[in-house]
């Protein structure tokens, strides 16, 4: 059974880290989590981003958050990536596998995975 003592240990460990992190978060990954997104499979996509961003050591730079309906329900699950000074990137029809690739290539490598963007679908 997971104990609250373990949580206490996490707290002790995190304390220094959290202070360091303030003022960061240049990149925002936003996953659409309205009824349309959820029904289309946004939950595993979000959870993959949360997991990979942390495991790849990107937490200082990247925050993962949720939003409501983005308005293009036919393209759900939709993920938007906001980066200061850059144009917004909209990924559509996402899956957990694609999310993994976006973390690796885009968030880590700095290269937009253009075949998953809305531009690739509308062209």
């Amino acid at each position: 059974m997971k104990s609250l003592e373990e949580l206490q240990a996490i707290k002790a460990k995190m304390k220094d880290k959290v202070v360091l992190r303030e003022g960061s978060g240049d990149v925002r990954v936003v996953v659409g989590m309205a009824t349309c997104g959820i029904a289309a499979g946004a939950r595993p996509v979000l959870n993959e981003f949360v997991k990979d961003v942390s495991e790849e050591g990107l937490s200082d730079k990247v925050t993962v958050s949720q939003t409501g309906c983005i308005g293009i329900c036919q393209y759900e699950p939709v993920v938007e990536v906001f980066e200061a000074g850059k144009e917004k990137v909209t990924y559509v029809k996402m899956t957990a596998e694609k999310a993994k690739e976006v973390v690796e290539k885009h968030l880590k490598g700095g290269k937009v995975v253009s075949q998953y963007t809305i531009g690739a679908y509308q062209a």
Binding site: L7, Q8, I10, K11, M14, K15, V18, V50, K51
Partner: peptide, 15 residues
């Protein structure tokens, strides 16, 4: 109650 204000619940290790 354990984590207090310093550590948010969406910290990955907490999640």
């Amino acid at each position: 109650a354990v984590l207090g204000d310093e550590v948010p619940l969406n910290e990955y290790e907490v999640i």
